[in-house]
Design a protein around this nucleic acid. Structure first.
Lengths: 107, 107
DNA sequence: TTGGTACCTTTGTATTACAAGGTAGCTTTA
DNA sequence: TAAAGCTACCTTGTAATACAAAGGTACCAA
C-alpha cells in the first residue's frame, strides 16, 4: 500500500492501538516494533515511538522488563498490563463499531 | 456508543469520508448530514461541516445544486462528482487495508 | 418586523509525528 | 587497555492540520 499522504489524518491516533496490538502478540522492544510497523503503512521513527511508549507507561497500559542482549546494551521488553489489555479490547470494540457506522451511512 | 474522548484522535480525519459516504447514499443538505451523523459517534457542528464541505468542493469531490424549500430559504443539495466517487472507493480500499493490518499485527 | 432557517468565515486550540541532537552501555580491534 | 563503532535509550523543538466555537449575513414566511 502506498505511503499516501491522503490518509495521514486517518493514520493519526491509530498508532497507539497498533502498538498495543503488537505488544499483545509478542514480547518486543522498540527496534522490533519498528520492524513490524515497517511492513505496514505505519512505518515510524524512534522519536515517535519513545515518547508514545513513555506516555503509555504513565497511563499504565504497558510495562517493561530489562533484558540483556547477546550483543550490545540491555533492552526494554514491553508487555501489556491488565489495563492495557482492556484498553485494547475497548479499541477493538470501537473499531467494530466504526465498521458498522461506515456501512450504515452508506445507504 | 459513548462520546468517549479516548477515541477522538481516531475519529479525526474520518469525518470527511463519512460525509462522502452519506452523500453517496442520498441527496442531502447540511442539516440532513448533521441529523445522520447525530445517530452516530460523529455528531458535529455546522461550523465544522461548512468549512469541510467548502474544502471538498474546492478539491472537486462534491458539487451541489440549489433547491427551493417549502418553508425557508433555498438549500444546497450535495452530490458526489466522479472524482468524489473514486475518492470514496479509495477510502474503502484503504479501510479494508487497515483491517488487514490490524489483524496481522495481532499475532 | 419578528422569528426561523440556511448559508458562510474567522479564530483559536490541541494533537501528533517527525527531525535532530544527546547520553551511555557493550563489543571489537588496534 | 584504549579507542572506535554499534546499539539502545531518551528529550526537545517544530510544523502541520483538523476541528470546534463563535460570530455574522441573508432569505423567507407569518
Amino acid at each position: 500500500m502506498s505511503a499516501d499522504q491522503k490518509f495521514n489524518p486517518i493514520r493519526k491516533g491509530l498508532l497507539e492501538f497498533l502498538i498495543l496490538q503488537i505488544i499483545s502478540a509478542d514480547k518486543v522492544y522498540v527496534a522490533d516494533m519498528m520492524k513490524r510497523l515497517q511492513e505496514t503503512d505505519f512505518a515510524t521513527q524512534e522519536g515517535t515511538l519513545y515518547p508514545l511508549l513513555s506516555k503509555m507507561r504513565r497511563e499504565e497500559f504497558v510495562d517493561y522488563e530489562w533484558q540483556e542482549s547477546d550483543s550490545g546494551p540491555p533492552r526494554k521488553y514491553y508487555k501489556l498490563t491488565a489495563k492495557g489489555k482492556s484498553q485494547l479490547a475497548e479499541f477493538k470494540d470501537y473499531w467494530a463499531y466504526l465498521n458498522t457506522t461506515i456501512n450504515q451511512l452508506g445507504r
